[in-house]
Amino acid sequence: MPLLELPDEGNNMANAQYEKGKIVLEHSKNQVKKAGECIRKGNGDIEKAIEIIQQYRAAHLYPLMIIKNLVSKHAQKINKNALIARRLKRLPTIIDKLRRKTLDGVTPNSIAVTRMSDIGGCRVIVENRLQLLLLDSSLDKSRTTHKSKVKDYIKHPKPTGYRGIHRIYSCYDKDEAHQWKGFDIEVQLRTKLQHLWATTIEVVDLCEGRTLKTNPFESNHSWVDFFRLMSEFIADEEEFISLTPQEKNKIKTRLISLNDKLNAIEKLRSFNRLFSDKDLDLSKIKGGYVIIALKGNKIYYKVYTTLQKHLAIEAYSVVEKDEDANGLFVEMDDLRKLSYAYPNYLIDTRFFIDKYELYTSTKYWEKHR
């Protein structure tokens, strides 16, 4: 879960933060690997295995702070307003990645938890293509004891359409010995539009119960295709690629068809209304599910406990059959997580909707750049 960074208030606070983050790994890497296998196969002492994974995750905090500070210095030189965030991967996400059938849609998943390079993650969001390339170049030239390798999803986008540049830092790799030698930290570099695309996917995942981000190979292929095509248009707008008018019109036609099938844009509008509605106060609800229906200019909702999931599903089916309503089935934990992870503008899907309308409703894309 990304945390927005605030300026340090003096060296004492910075030093205290460093000391608090110095959690040393209590187990060998082999023990951590075995714990991951225990969780993958679902046998052995699962509770103990999870405890080991949690401690391994916590031990990433210090190298994560070190890499975040390294990247921040370079980012500030290029854009003082660059958004810099960091997070430790959530335990349920780690477990899901271990148990997933495949990570690439082809080969069986056999990843060891000790080979997960994104347990500690740092993200930098800059304004545009030029700033992104300048930041990547600056980091390339950086003199540091941390070894890095680059995964360039600009030149080679993921099958989902994800674009950005990832740098994997192997901490203190050039030191002979260090308590955090070999810990991997992933740094994601994105433009604002690339980040808009990625966070809109996360909103759909949480509100629609999809796995577009974490497990696209077993998700709804129409949603995956919708976002992949939007990514093509965004990449063209930012001049990472150049689409011909014929290619643009073909993508435009397919996007409209997918939107008709998914009701995607109306759902995004509904999500935005949900998060911006001040009368919808769900803060006192501790758990369970909420069915939300957006009909006309009004929002209706009903809350169910965890034990009433079957009733919640039945209620959602009724809402879905109403052609005049947009329905949402939301787990309360997910709603709170989303509100915390993406405060204010990051939940606002209007910018993504604006892009869709630009790409499908104007003659702009029929012109040569």
Rank of each mutant, 00 (worst) to 15 (best):
E238T: 06
E247L: 02
T253D: 15
N215F: 04
L206K: 15
Q179F: 11
K174N: 14
W197L: 06
I234C: 06
Q194M: 14
Y172W: 14
N220P: 10
A177T: 14
E239M: 07
Q194L: 03
L229Q: 06
R228A: 11
T244P: 02
H178S: 12
Q188D: 12
C207V: 04
E238M: 11
L193G: 05
T214I: 10
F226S: 02
E208D: 10
G209P: 09
N249M: 11
E208I: 02
S222G: 00
T191Q: 08
G182S: 03
N215W: 00
I251T: 00
A198G: 01
N220A: 10
F226P: 00
H178N: 15
Y172K: 05
E218I: 07
F227P: 01
D184L: 12
H195T: 05
L243D: 02
T211G: 03
K181P: 02
P216M: 05
K192Y: 10
S231C: 04
A177W: 08
E218K: 04
D225I: 00
D184G: 01
T211V: 09
K213E: 08
K213P: 06
E238P: 12
F233A: 09
K252E: 10
W197E: 02
S231Y: 01
Q179S: 14
G182N: 04
S222K: 06
V203R: 11
A198P: 11
F183Y: 11
L212K: 02
N215S: 14
E247P: 01
F226E: 00
I185W: 13
K181M: 09
W223M: 07
D184M: 13
L206N: 10
D236C: 13
V204A: 15
L196K: 03
E186I: 01
S219G: 12
F217A: 12
I241N: 02
F217L: 03
F240S: 05
S222D: 14
I185Y: 05
L196P: 08
F240L: 15
K248C: 15
P245D: 12
A177M: 13
T244I: 04
T211A: 13
E186R: 04
E202K: 08
W197P: 07
K252R: 15
Y172M: 15
L193H: 03
D236P: 11
M230S: 01
R190H: 09
T214H: 09
N215E: 06
G209H: 09
D184E: 15
E218T: 08
E176L: 15
T244H: 02
R254E: 00
T191N: 10
E247W: 00
T214V: 10
